[in-house]
């Protein structure tokens, strides 16, 4: 079972604003699902044996050549707000 604080911490990390109702709803649901998953604990596995899903013969590299995307407008037209050709949002003070 997760605590309310844990749910809020996860929601904060995931940048999800939750209503109070949602918090208790997810506390319950996440708890149920995570309880079910404890079945994995007992299974014997070895380190470094995670699955490799990408086929071995897949292409690993792209040549260093410039290809210009033809429709830059289409990339900007979906923006909720634009200014001076950039994606606009409220002012940010510092940089990551």
């Amino acid at each position: 079972m997760l605590t309310k604080e844990e749910v809020l911490k996860i929601a904060r990390l995931a940048r999800l604003e939750l209503t109070d109702d949602e918090v208790s709803f997810y506390q319950n649901r996440l708890g149920r699902v995570l309880d079910y998953m404890t079945e994995l604990k007992g299974i014997e596995t070895r380190e470094g044996t995670g699955v490799r899903h990408v086929p071995l013969d897949s292409e690993k590299f792209r040549n260093d050549e410039v290809v210009t995307f033809p429709d830059k407008e289409a990339l900007l037209q979906n923006a909720p707000a634009l200014e001076e050709g950039g994606f606009l949002l409220p002012a940010i003070m510092e940089t990551e």
């Binding site: 995931a14 999800l16 709803f25």
Partner: peptide
């Protein structure tokens, strides 16, 4: 994100997070 995603999507995002 809170308003844009539906119930199940938010559940899975939180589960994965």
């Amino acid at each position: 994100r809170g308003q844009g995603f539906g119930k199940e999507v938010k559940l899975r995002i939180m589960l994965g997070t």
